[in-house]
Design a binder for these strands. Structure first.
Length: 874
DNA sequence: CAGGGCACGC
DNA sequence: GACGTACGTGCCCTGT
């Protein structure tokens, strides 16, 4: 059977435009509507497999409906230029896909669709119509279904006759009658004032058409209603007429002309490339062309490594397939250089003195993707890797931290080189991930090597262009080796201590559980927000403060507002907190103690955050509890790995606000830090205009919240939440702050302007973050981008500073031949383990290095503490 | 197995 | 009026 799919082009493009962020390609052409349209189109092609297909567009401004009603669609916001400029691209896209599209003067897309669906039905075809406009529902019939976009563009709802009946209680043919009565604000169709959807549907159930409703006015109950209908009878009839979709639109199109035709995949990929639709390109490539269009590569599988193979420079691929690279398998190794392309099976490499000698030779230059992964994996096997001069992962991250992927395959694709497939394509994903045959593996690794070797110069050029070469070479590259060393060193955790705490927490947990069931009058899963919500808000009838997408919110801030309303609430809050300690910190940490070393080896991700901070995984050692005493005790389990050593913690005091003082060049702030004042008290003095002695604890608390907001990108709403005040009050508060520190205000304005001009903001060491949404028409998106513009230079510069400090401290430890080891970095603090005899020296050395690492207009201040456990280093 | 809700850190 | 405090990761639950 023939199947015709009709797409309402304007409606879908419009939906896509508002559903997606304002994307643009490299040339700055906006593409979000095209992107959304394309994803939908590909989905339709794949899922519907239509034999015939057409995309209908609206034509021009006036339609035959304007002859009936001049004000039709008036008052509508003009289509934004960001959207209208995308329509030619959509047409171009349809052309390369060989998909028919049309528009007809004086008619709307609806009318084209109505006409063609009627003709197709008459031929006995099946018809599917895609739109975001409910008007189209009038076309639903036995043969025709209408698919409406629900939220965004990806979720849709299919309507047949039954669904329309279920939803509205009327037949599709009655939709125009409904519109006749209720009108349609978006098209400026008046309908009958005072009649909305509910009333319209009620009337139509009794009298099936507008005409019959009007003929029966006398029998309709309600004096007001009668009057309204009488008064607006002509308007109702006209409104209905406007809502009826034409089924006889004059046009040249024939059904046969809508037949799907094969298209040229090359033309499609070229256009997708031009639009920068990488994810679609990838999907399309895999679907349509497989791997055959990769450039050829020939390589040698090495049985014995020789010195000639290992030139300098070489690209080196060390394939560590597990997410967690500690003590992990290595599937294979590839070396690519000017002399040749080599796949070296792991055993061959690791048993070869020639290879190991070369790997550890600092003077032999290597280009690697994710050097830390290779260094750590090899390190566990006793193989040293030195001389890495280019890490492509880090380079890509510095060039654009927001890139959706920094994998070799994607970087290559971005540079328009089809050299290598993604790991996912070769290995599969999730549970289906397997080691491929030796031939496939060898070729894949060699391809990665080729990508590295050919793309390295281009990436370094970009870094240079962005003035990021120093950041790359002198900071991030050395840092990755330091991080690798920290990860291998690991931190000792005492399982006995954790187990003991775990038992106590378990007792607390079962007591709380019992009390909660008692108070709830029933047992239920406390960990399920859904079940908890129904207990609190339905069974116990507590007031609903906030809702989530899926139901009632039971988050801590909601529960805190309810804490006086029911005894169960404080128990729940405590339960949640203890549960967190037990599952994430006790059980979680016990699980990741390495069986051989008895230590915990985290992995620092150096290429993920948008601000330049590090992150830590498996486990995350950057979020070990500290605020509440019950959780803070977890830190007692973190101990030095050698007897008689100490844990030493050194943290920057108020580094972000110092950075702000520096960047904004605010004299008052700079002076405050030079005088070593309590900065929150100082802020309170300036904002409230009082003397130091007059600052109340409440004033200081408010000032602290404002400072916090400044650091994290302030919004009046956010501040109002954290202080429990109204948005208006919060806004006044912020304004008072900015009045007190005019240079800070100036900075905030300048940096936003800079972001608008350049499209990105930078940190002290030229780290970069792109903010395309800074010019968005959407208030929320734009505001978010503005806050990010203000915040990223502050947080990012703080990240620059501590990273530089790590490099400097590492140098100092080596230079002074100290045994002390750097273990962790937690954003503004460094954690060491230190032998007793080095304590005294470290207590002076570490702060002094950290404070001198980068000179700002304000002094940096570092506080040190030490103890027998991490808990005691306070 | 992905996405949502929640909670921990700075 | 806009419903969003920044940046992360991990655990549990739920629905496909």
């Amino acid at each position: 059977m023939k199947k015709l799919v009709l797409i309402d082009g304007n409606s879908i493009a419009y939906r896509a435009f508002y559903a997606l962020p304002l994307l643009h390609n490299e040339k700055g052409v906006y593409t979000n509507a095209v992107y959304g349209f394309t994803t939908m189109l590909l989905k339709v092609l794949e899922e519907e497999k239509p034999t015939h297909l057409l995309v209908a567009f609206d034509a021009g401004k006036t339609t035959f409906r304007h002859d009936t009603y001049e004000a039709y669609k008036s008052g509508r916001q003009k289509t934004p230029s960001e959207l209208s400029e995308q329509f030619p691209l959509i047409r171009e896209l349809l052309d390369v896909f060989q998909i028919a599209h049309t528009e007809v003067d004086h008619y709307e897309a609806d009318d084209i669709i109505g006409t063609l669906s009627k003709r197709a039905e008459e031929e006995g075809w099946q018809v599917h119509i895609y739109s975001g406009d409910k008007d189209l529902l009038q076309l639903v019939s036995e043969k025709t279904k209408v698919i409406l976009t629900k939220k965004g563009i990806t979720t849709v709802e299919t309507y047949d006759e039954q669904t329309v009946m279920d939803k509205y209680g009327i037949t599709p043919a009655q939709i125009p009658d409904m519109k006749g009565l209720m009108g349609d604000a978006s098209d400026n169709i008046p309908g009958v004032p005072g009649i909305g959807e509910k009333t319209a549907l009620k009337l139509l159930k009794e009298y099936p058409t507008v005409e019959e409703v009007l003929a029966s006015i006398d029998q309709i109950s309600g004096k007001k209603m009668k009057e309204r209908l009488k008064e607006h009878r002509e308007q109702a009839l006209m409104s209905k007429k406007l809502a009826i979709i034409s089924r006889e639109t004059p046009m040249d199109v024939t059904l046969d002309g809508l037949k799907r035709e094969p298209y040229d995949p090359k033309a499609v990929t070229d256009l997708l490339k031009e639009l920068d639709f990488r994810s679609l390109l990838k999907q399309f490539d895999e679907d349509e062309t497989g791997e055959e269009n990769l450039e050829e590569v020939t390589f040698e599988t090495v049985k014995e490594v020789t010195e000639e193979m290992l030139m300098s420079p070489s690209a080196l691929v060390v394939e560590v397939p597990d997410d967690n690279y500690h003590d992990s398998d290595i599937w294979g190794i590839a070396v690519v250089n000017h002399r040749g392309k080599y796949y070296i099976p792991t055993d061959v490499a690791l048993h070869s003195d020639v290879f190991k000698q070369w790997a550890s030779d600092e003077t032999k230059e290597k280009y690697i993707f994710d050097a830390k992964r290779a260094v750590v994996a090899l390190g566990w096997k006793g193989v040293s890797l030195k001389g890495v001069t280019h890490d492509m992962l880090i380079a890509s991250y510095l060039i654009d931290p927001s890139a959706s992927s920094h994998s070799a395959a994607d970087i290559a694709l971005r540079k328009n080189k089809k050299i290598v497939q993604t790991d996912e394509f070769i290995y599969g994903k999730g549970a289906k991930r397997v080691r491929p045959s030796e031939e496939v593996l060898g070729e894949h690794l060699v391809r990665k090597g080729v990508a590295l070797f050919t793309l390295k110069d281009s990436l370094e050029e970009e870094l240079q262009k962005n003035q990021q070469d120093k950041l790359f070479q002198k900071l991030e590259m050395p840092l990755s080796l330091i991080l690798g060393k920290m990860e291998i060193t690991g931190i000792r955790v005492d399982p006995a201590q954790l187990n003991k705490m775990g038992e106590e927490l378990q007792k607390t947990l079962s007591d709380l559980e019992e009390e909660i069931y008692e108070l709830a009058g029933t047992t239920f899963n406390i960990n399920s927000p859904k079940q908890l919500g129904s207990i609190l808000f339905e069974k116990l009838n507590l007031p609903v403060i906030k809702k989530t997408k899926t139901g009632y919110s039971t988050s801590a801030d909601v529960l805190e507002k309810l804490s006086d309303r029911h005894e169960i609430i404080p128990k729940l809050l405590h339960y949640r907190q203890v549960m967190k300690l037990q599952s994430t910190y006790i059980e979680g940490l016990l699980k990741v103690i390495h069986p051989k070393t008895k230590k915990i080896h985290t992995m620092f991700n150096q290429a993920i955050t948008q601000t330049g901070r590090l992150s830590s995984t498996e486990p995350n050692l950057q979020n070990i509890p500290i605020r509440l005493e019950e959780g803070r005790k977890i830190r007692q389990a973190f101990t030095p790995s050698e007897p008689d050593w100490y844990i030493l913690a050194a943290d920057y005091s108020q580094i972000e606000l110092r950075v702000l003082a520096h960047i904004a060049e605010d004299d008052k702030l700079i002076q405050a830090f030079q005088d070593n004042m309590d900065i929150h008290t100082k802020t309170a003095m300036d904002v409230f205009g009082v003397e130091k002695e007059e600052v109340t604890s409440n004033m200081r608390r408010s000032a602290k919240a404002v400072n916090f907001g400044i650091i994290y990108g302030i919004s009046d709403y956010g501040l109002s939440q954290s202080l429990g005040i109204t948005r208006k009050e919060a806004e006044q508060f912020i304004n008072k702050y900015l009045d007190s520190y005019p240079k800070v205000k100036e900075y905030m304005d300048t940096i936003k302007e800079e972001a608008r001009q350049k499209g990105y903001v930078t940190t002290l060491l030229h780290r970069r973050r792109y903010l395309p949404e800074i010019t968005s028409k959407n208030f929320n998106r734009r505001s978010f981008a503005e806050r990010t513009a203000m915040n990223t230079p502050i947080q990012g510069t703080a990240a620059d500073i501590i990273k530089q400090a790590m490099v400097d401290v590492n140098d100092a430890l080596i230079e002074k031949n100290l045994k002390s080891r750097l273990l962790l970095q937690v954003h503004d603090e460094l954690i060491f383990e230190v032998p007793e005899e080095e304590l005294e020296e470290m207590i002076t050395l570490v702060p002094s290095v950290m404070e001198k690492t980068i000179q700002l207009k304000v002094p940096l201040q570092v506080d040190v503490a030490y103890g027998k456990t991490w808990y005691d280093a306070k």
